[in-house]
């Protein structure tokens, strides 16, 4: 049985690209346009992994992660955050407490995203490839 991935992003073209690649890879994919819709989907049926954006209407990525960690039934859900972040995250956000499995930056590689999901589902963690700040 294939793993179930929940994709959450308010940019439809991002959702479409990620969904297309992950489905090709063999995942069962569900897409939601904002944090609130994703939370409702999680409550209805817990996915194996969540891939979420940060900036979203109604409920943002951090808010969604907090809800997931606070709920006993979903607190162990692996989360990948996919964001075009500049420096939105502050020390107040306390990312460590949210136990984000991987933080992927936009622009992203659909191939890399699929590999990341597979690694997390297999090993429970993800080792990001080294990046150059000057690339």
């Amino acid at each position: 049985m294939s793993h179930r991935v929940l994709l959450c992003d308010d940019e439809m073209h991002i959702l479409r690209a990620a969904e297309f690649k992950l489905k090709k890879t063999g995942f069962d994919v569900q897409c939601e346009p904002d944090g609130q819709a994703a939370w409702e989907a999680i409550c209805e049926q817990k996915p194996d992994i969540l891939v979420t954006d940060y900036h979203m209407p109604r409920l943002d990525g951090l808010g969604l992660c907090r809800k997931i960690r606070e709920c006993e039934a979903t607190s162990d859900l692996p989360i990948i955050m996919l964001t075009a972040k500049g420096f939105e995250f502050t020390s107040d956000d306390n990312l460590d407490a949210l136990d984000i499995a991987a933080m992927l930056g936009k622009p992203f590689s659909p191939r890399g995203l699929a590999k990341c999901i597979e690694e997390i589902l297999e090993t429970g963690s993800y080792t990001a490839p080294p990046i150059s700040l000057l690339r």
């Binding site: 991002i14 990620a18 900036h55 075009a84 972040k85 930056g105 936009k106 622009p107």
Partner: peptide, 12 residues
């Protein structure tokens, strides 16, 4: 951020 979003689409 605003530039990365369309760029992410193009690259993907």
């Amino acid at each position: 951020h605003e530039m990365k979003t369309p760029l992410a689409g193009i690259k993907a």
